[in-house]
Design a protein around this nucleic acid. Structure first.
Lengths: 192, 192
DNA sequence: AACAAAATAGACCAATCGGTCAAATTATTA
DNA sequence: TAATAATTTGACCGATTGGTCTATTTTGTT
């Protein structure tokens, strides 16, 4: 009967959350099991109890978690915007915000893992692919619902620009490459 | 007086070359000093003789090397093409070729490093930034020379798409996301 | 030939890597 | 409450990490 806060986060979720954060910034190889444990204070045995597959299994879950969080954030940003162009520009604005808030430590959550070769950790690689597929379908549906032609290819172009723009933003330490995307959206999407 | 081949690659260059290849595929953290040494057969002492700064210095040089190689490959692909659209499509074709030849192990050479957070290795980070800046200026000049308006912002959009498209291509294991870029180039650039 | 500088060679180091495992503890069910 | 299952705890493991250091060999210069 301890005084506990309303929501008690499980050990498993705490591991996934921390792994997700580290992974987004340092990739698969840069994310250390021991670092996750030290920062969360969770002992090693617990990790291998919840994730018998070890690092691969934990990071697979972390990719899924990151993907969901990213998709939800994008959806929230788009919600309520009157035009498609405005909805997508709100997504870019959200990303810009993240970069500014984290002093450019933020990056494309899935990209940092997906970019690393991974003949090895196929489990993690598959999780990345599925996360991207969900995002693609989500964008496609959004465009299709608003009467945009070539909704699939347009969705792909937009995701390409977002992912690439995020890398460039991180590399340069300024948001110019993301701002350019907003301008470009005006060109390729119907006004108002 | 040994029978030696025409070109003798220096120990230094062999290290940079191998580091570059590993780094493009596995990023900063995934690239191990020991792995480089084992695969090249070069002893450890030689590495720290040529690169007193250790891993950071070697990988900085590797980023510069990768950037130059990438830029040259793009330039070669564009050369001789009559229209800007065709020149840029040739660049995408080159990238597609690389993916197919390497069974999708190829990735954006600089992106794999740039995406990893790097408050730490500032040296490497700066090298990434400079590599991207050179590429941006190169594309901008190419567009400007061919009478394209908004050459800088257009260059940035194109680089964004290339980098993002490469990540998505790697994640999905097919070239659809790169093909879409070629179609899009037709839309945003003047025909022939 | 003699000397100095450059480069090669690899043994060695502490620290960290991901992972295993047996014991102790807490929760659940009978 | 007794038995059982789920979970936590942390010591321990071999392998690998990036890095240092002292010889030895090769190269260049006079």
């Amino acid at each position: 009967m301890t005084m506990e806060t309303a929501e008690q986060i499980s050990t498993r979720d705490r591991l996934i959350e921390k792994a997700s954060k580290l992974m987004e910034r340092k990739g698969y190889f840069g994310t250390g099991i021991n670092e996750i444990l030290k920062e969360t204070g969770i002992p090693k045995g617990s990790l291998y109890h919840h994730f018998p597959g070890g690092k691969n299994e934990l990071l697979k879950e972390a990719v899924i978690y990151s993907g969901k969080r990213q998709l939800r954030a994008y959806s929230d940003a788009m919600m309520g915007k009157k035009t498609v162009a405005n909805g997508l520009k709100a997504v870019i604005d959200y990303i810009i915000e993240q970069f500014l808030e984290t002093d450019f430590q933020y990056s494309c959550p899935i990209g940092a893992i997906a970019i690393e070769s991974a003949t090895e950790n196929k489990v993690v690689k598959d999780a990345c692919q599925q996360a991207y597929e969900k995002m693609e379908k989500s964008f496609e549906a959004y465009l299709n619902l608003n009467g945009i032609e070539d909704s699939l290819s347009t969705a792909r172009i937009i995701i390409n620009m977002i992912e690439g723009g995020s890398i460039l933003t991180k590399a340069h330490g300024n948001i110019e490459h993301l701002k350019v995307i907003k301008d470009h959206l005006n060109k390729i999407l119907p006004e108002s």
